[in-house]
Design a protein around this nucleic acid. Structure first.
Lengths: 222, 222
DNA sequence: CAGCATACTAAACGACTGTTCAGCACCACG
DNA sequence: CGTGGTGCTGAACAGTCGTTTAGTATGCTG
């Protein structure tokens, strides 16, 4: 027996293949991951991957769909009733932070989404469009709450905010490199958020030396 | 005896290989481009690629170095004496625009830089660090000119502005998809820049319905 | 002139790719 | 009992990969 089932699997082999493929596809391009590597990681034979998914393309499509579905479920949950994200920009922080906080830690969904966003394709376009619409709704809610203006061109303004938000996500490693702190980590947010809120709050000229705003915060609004 | 490295003869084939590799590496990952494809595009045999560059890795490194050198030369030129980029944020527009305008059109340096930024590695890190330092200098110059404040954490503020700028560059296709206009094209800038300048000028709340600033300009100082 | 480095190619090598195929073990259903 | 459908495997297929090797043509150098 070459392929021993040493993995303690409650989950089916199918799900194991999908999860391991997700894990590998997150760190390098699917084209650079072989079926044999996925199979080995899942503890099965390469032929079983074909058997379950019809081939490498099928596997890729299914993983894409799985990630997008998980992501959109999370998105719906985050923007559901009573969520602070749509009303208070300082409470929920950025979209990137919110996602990273709520994404399941055992699967590298963050890295996968990053790669998905950057490699064109159907799933990529759908994903970005969903984010864009969320950004538009968020901006509208912020305007409703009186903490932001829709701007002359609300679509562009929503796109601008979304792009800025995603930039931290896409350039996370580079930013960590030059700043010495991961802007999406807990310590990093302490540096990043005030600067961002200062600019969004009053522009590049506002409050040169003072702290932008200080409220006695209460716990648990995250 | 030692021969001179640069003989006018070898420049043709060698440079042809390098340029075709650059062209192909710009549109898909170098791992997804075969030596045979590069050789065919350059009209030579695959073995000659190895002969000149020592192998695929050597070719890749040389193309990276060539692009980075070209890019940094352009950067030095743009930030040299008398350049408006460091003093007037509205004049030069964003870094992305400036680069796209001045990049040579025959070689897809823009797409290559995009890919280089996103695939980690030595050249990638050096490139981003250079951009980060430029962003810091630009912010300092803007502060000197009185059009921006350094902020509480100037490094983070410079990184924030750089990330936002690069976001348009990295997400260009997606933004074009949802907005219907390429934000880096000439018509796109007309939509994008006012919104960006409004936020940078006065924050998200400033000037809800009016135009952010209007100067009776006739000449295009863009 | 001989000698030798350079530019270059055709052919082949071993490793790896995605996929196919015949067949084994198992469980459900008649 | 037999029959069929899964889940799954090892072996093999044809193709591509980066690289090596042997070799030719072309000049420069001493």
């Amino acid at each position: 027996m070459l392929y021993m089932r040493s993995i303690p699997d409650d989950r089916t082999a199918r799900a194991a293949i999908r999860d391991e493929a997700l894990r590998l596809f997150a760190e390098r391009d699917p084209d650079a991951v072989s079926v044999r590597q996925v199979a080995a990681a899942a503890g099965v034979s390469p032929a079983l991957v074909v058997h379950h998914f019809g081939g490498k393309d099928g596997l890729r499509r299914e993983v894409d769909a799985y990630v997008v579905a998980t992501f959109e479920a999370l998105l719906g949950e985050l923007t559901g009733e009573g969520s602070a994200m749509l009303t208070d920009p300082a409470a929920g922080g950025t979209l990137s932070e919110a996602l990273l906080r709520h994404l399941p830690a055992d699967l590298p969904l963050g890295a996968y989404l990053r790669r998905l966003l950057l490699t064109g394709g159907e799933a990529s376009r759908a994903l970005f469009r969903g984010l864009f619409e969320l950004s538009g709704r968020t901006l509208a809610a912020l305007a409703e709450a009186g903490v932001a203006a829709r701007g002359r061109d609300p679509e562009v303004r929503a796109a601008f905010l979304l792009a800025n938000d995603l930039a931290v996500f896409l350039l996370r490693d580079h930013l960590t490199g030059v700043l010495g702190t991961d802007p999406l980590s807990e310590e990093g947010v302490v540096r990043w958020a005030p600067e961002m809120l200062a600019i969004y709050g009053g522009g590049l000229l506002a409050a040169p030396e003072e702290e932008p705003e200080r409220e006695p915060e209460e716990e648990g609004t995250a």
